[in-house]
Structures are given as C-alpha cells and as structure tokens.
Nucleic acid binder design. Structure first.
Length: 500
DNA sequence: CTATGTAAACAAC
DNA sequence: GTTGTTTACATAG
C-alpha cells in the first residue's frame, strides 16, 4: 500500500466516498441526478449517490487493510465536472455474436481518452479480457472499470480479478476456455437480468456504511433460502462454505432446519444449484494441490459467493428458473394423477441427472487439464501486486478465468424480466447471463444503440454474468452498457452532429 | 404473475 | 447416504 493510498483512506474510510465518487452528481443532467439520490444518506448532502434499493440491503464485511490499495481516487475528484461513471461507454456484448464487442462510438473516444490520460495504479486493459479478439483494446465498462481500466475496487467488490495482468494477446479464447471448470460453465437456468433499481427481490449486498436493521444475534432467521445462504456466505471471511458448513449454519442461525430429514437441505442444494450468486468449486483448488482423498470425494466441492454478489447481493433463485412465468399449472395439470406426476418428474429427474453427470465430467476434465498443463496464473508472471485478499473471493484469484461466452443457440425474448424490451439482437437469450444494471437509465437500452447518446443524461450499466455454457468465472460480460456523459468542457462537441 | 418452498427423479460418488 | 442438477407442483401475496 502506498503512502498516498493510506492517506487517502483516512479521508475516505468507507464506501461512502467511493460511492460518492462513482456517482458524482451531474447537475446539468437531471435524469442522472434522479438516479443518484441521497436516499442512502451516504456522504454529504452535496453529493448524491447511486440509489440502490435499501430495503433489501444487507451488510457487507468491513473493509480490511489493503482494500483500497488499488483505488486511485485521483480519478474521482469531486471538483471535476466529470465522473468516472459518466465515462462508461456504450457497449454491447452480443450473445448472438459471441466474442464480439461493439466498438467505442467515435464520439465517446475522446472523453474516454481524456479520462484515461490520468495515471492509474495498475493500468491493465481490462477490455482485453472481454475482447476475445487479440490485440483489440477496447474500453469496456464493468463494475471494475469505467473505461477499460481496473481503476479501483469498491468495498466488497472482488478485487484483483485476473484483469490485473491479463493479456489477451498471449492467450487465445480457446486457451482461456480450457481453463474453465464445469462449475463455471454450468449454466444457471435462464439467468435473468438484474437491475438494482428495479428488482424487488434483489437481495443487495451493501457497503459497510449502509444502515442495516440487523437481526437479533440470538434470533433465528426466517428468510428466503437464497437470502439465508447469502448471509451464511457473508459470515465467512472468504465467502466460502461447504455444503455441510451451510447446513450447520442453517441449524445454528435459521428456523429452517427443524428436522434433519427435512426438505430444507434439499432446498439449500436447490438454491445453490440454481442461483448464479453461488458457485461451486473444487476445494483442492484452494491450495492448488490435488488431494487424492479429495479427488473424488463427495465433499470435494465447496461453494463460493460470487464476487459481484458480495457487493450487489443475490437475487431470488426464482429468477433463474426456466419458464418461470409459464408454468402455472392448468386445471388439467392440477388434476393429474400421481402417476402422471411421476412420469414428469422422471423426465426432469433424468435431465437433472444427466446435467449432474455432465457437470462432473467437465469438472474431471478440467482437473485433468489443470494437472497436465497448468495455465499461467495471471498476474504472477509479471510480478504485479496481488489484489487485496480480504474481499476477493477465491474464484478471482486463480487461473479459473476464461472468456465470457454466450449461448448463441438460446435466443428468446426475456421481457418477463423487465429489462429486455424485445428489441435488438441482444435481448434476452434463454441462457442470458445474469445481469446487473446500475440505475434504470439503461433499462430500455437493449438494441437502442446510441440511445444513451441521444439521451446523455441517463446512466446505466447492464452487465451480464457469464452463465451460459462454456463461460468463465468472471461474472460480468457487458451485455449492454449505456451511459450518458456531459459534453466536453472546452465546448467542442463530441457528437457527430455537433450537438453537445 | 412472481416469489418461495418443497418434493422428487436421477446421476455420480 | 450424500451431493448436485433439474423440473414439477403448491401456495402466498
């Protein structure tokens, strides 16, 4: 940690200022201001912030030493008329055209470049990670970058994604995909989009500064499973638990575990499997050493709370269910005989079993590939500083990173999720990765292309977790990001039509 | 209609 | 028996 960073932290001891910086008010853009309210009472009254539904906010672990090491606050000077967030470019990542990213609109290049001109602590072109085309260095917005740089990590957000030293030029997309264990590629069924401002059942993670109504420590919790599992993970410093750990946590902290043979365990497993916020991984990967005892053990796996979920929380598992809105049983179905039910269950069970088998086969293949040809551990070769440990879940540490991929086969509208508008090629693939949206300005952006430019006041970022088959651990593909930004202060228009 | 809980089938271990 | 995946069904709001 550099001395300046320490000094800065004294001024910005928690997430408030970071949030403030990320949501710098743009008074000249009313719509943006509308999204940046002071409803969280974070920071000063002069600094509105990104408004996140607070009713579901849960606590995040406190910052640990080093959490802000990578955060260069010089990018977020409040005296600047611009904000980092305002420089998020208009990007679309097409599930239908995997591996392609729309380029930076020319009009956006300049402000991005201006922002980029500022020094960064570890300037790595994160764009290369999400840009399978070697050599292309496109600025890509993500929870970690506003212009393609890893310019800092928000508290609770996974630090040090392999982006820190990743070089797409040195590895082909195929190389990267090889490094993807099945737990990373197994799709959570129909991962929907998330909008933090528009998803009532998004169980938000929260900065430590956000006020929480914490339950009585002695009281047993009676909340949805997804939420409880989230709590369980958040109770662990590394957000990692085995299934048995989770069971025990439920016994200790919830009212669910009323009986040892109850369905609560089944429900936990169901939620773990179905919710994209929870990722399975091999325990042996933790140490990097293959344990013969662990190799084929049932308990070889552990579950990890995804980094984005640490920051943004989890959403209801329901949202990952297939055909969620079309399964209302008809009267005829409701009157089916048990035999008919059994037949249906047999089919679904068979599918489930096959999926479990495929998952294990992929895991095994991955383990063998790892043992046979260890892949470079991004960041280590170059001797770059490791990211802080405290808030970086294990998946982000290792070689288990690969390129985001999308299931081009699945391509159905997802209007039911509220953020697809049915327009454009990127709207709602069936295996659409879990998305995340900051503010609702982007809610209607799918397929709108330059909509954000025409309406430069809106700010939004709809990012996608990579959950489609053959996807990597990195949760954010940028399915769509659109953000308005203010005109250049020198009065030179960045728009082709000369408008401001 | 959504969210949630639960049961169940099935495969692999 | 345990773990993991998936689907089906019921219920509450």
């Amino acid at each position: 940690m550099s001395a300046p960073a320490v000094q800065e932290r004294q001024h910005l001891p928690d997430a408030r200022s970071l949030c403030s910086a990320m949501c710098h008010p743009l008074p000249e853009h009313p719509s943006l201001s509308a999204h940046c309210s002071d409803s969280y009472a974070l920071g000063t009254p002069a600094q509105p912030y990104l408004r996140i539904k607070s009713e579901h906010a849960w606590p995040s672990p406190p910052l640990a030493p080093g959490d802000l090491d990578h955060f260069d606050q010089s990018h977020f000077h409040h005296d600047s008329p611009t904000s980092a967030a305002a420089y998020i470019a208009n990007y679309t990542c097409s599930p239908a055209t995997p591996g392609t990213w729309s380029p930076v609109p020319h009009a956006l290049a300049r402000p991005i470049e201006r922002f980029r001109s500022q020094p960064l602590p570890d300037q790595q072109d994160f764009a290369s990670i999400c840009t399978p085309t070697p050599g292309r260095n496109l600025a890509i917005a993500s929870p970690f970058t506003a212009d393609g740089h890893h310019y800092g990590t928000l508290p609770g957000m996974p630090h040090g994604l392999p982006m820190d030293s990743f070089d797409a030029d040195s590895l082909s997309p195929e190389d990267l995909l090889v490094n993807t264990p099945s737990s990373m590629v197994t799709p959570k069924a129909e991962s929907p989009s998330i909008c933090l401002d528009d998803v009532p059942h998004m169980y938000l993670g929260a900065s430590p500064s956000i006020h929480m109504d914490l339950p009585d420590p002695d009281a047993k919790l009676d909340e949805p499973y997804a939420k409880l599992i989230y709590r369980a993970f958040m109770s662990r410093p590394d957000y990692t638990m085995t299934l048995q750990d989770i069971y025990q946590w439920f016994r200790d902290n919830t009212t669910k575990a009323v009986s040892e043979k109850g369905g609560w365990q089944n429900s936990i497993r169901h939620n773990l499997s179905m919710n994209a916020a929870f990722t399975k991984r091999h325990r042996k990967e933790e140490s990097g050493v293959l344990s013969p005892l662990m190799e084929d053990s049932k308990r070889a796996n552990e579950w990890v709370l995804e980094g984005w979920a640490i920051q943004y929380g989890v959403q209801s598992t329901t949202r990952y269910r297939k055909s969620n809105s079309r399964r209302r049983p008809s009267a005829r179905c409701a009157n089916q005989t048990p035999r008919q039910h059994s037949a249906k269950r047999a089919v679904s069970g068979r599918k489930g079993g096959c999926a479990a088998r495929d998952s294990r086969l992929r895991d095994r293949a991955y383990a063998q590939a790892m043992a046979a040809a260890p892949v470079p551990r991004f960041g280590l070769e170059r001797g770059l500083p490791s990211p802080p440990r405290s808030t970086m879940p294990e998946p982000y540490h290792s070689e288990r990173f690969s390129m985001p991929q999308f299931d081009s086969m699945a391509h159905v509208p997802s209007a039911q999720h509220g953020h697809g508008n049915g327009i454009g090629p990127y709207d709602g693939p069936a295996a659409e990765p879990l998305g995340l949206m900051l503010g609702d300005g982007a809610a209607t952006n799918m397929g709108h292309g330059m909509h954000s430019i025409a309406e430069p006041c809106s700010i939004g970022a709809q990012m996608s977790a990579c959950r489609a088959p053959a996807q990597g651990v990195f949760p954010y593909g940028i399915r769509d990001v659109h953000v308005g930004f203010e005109p250049m202060s020198d009065g030179i228009s960045d728009w082709a039509d000369g408008s401001m």
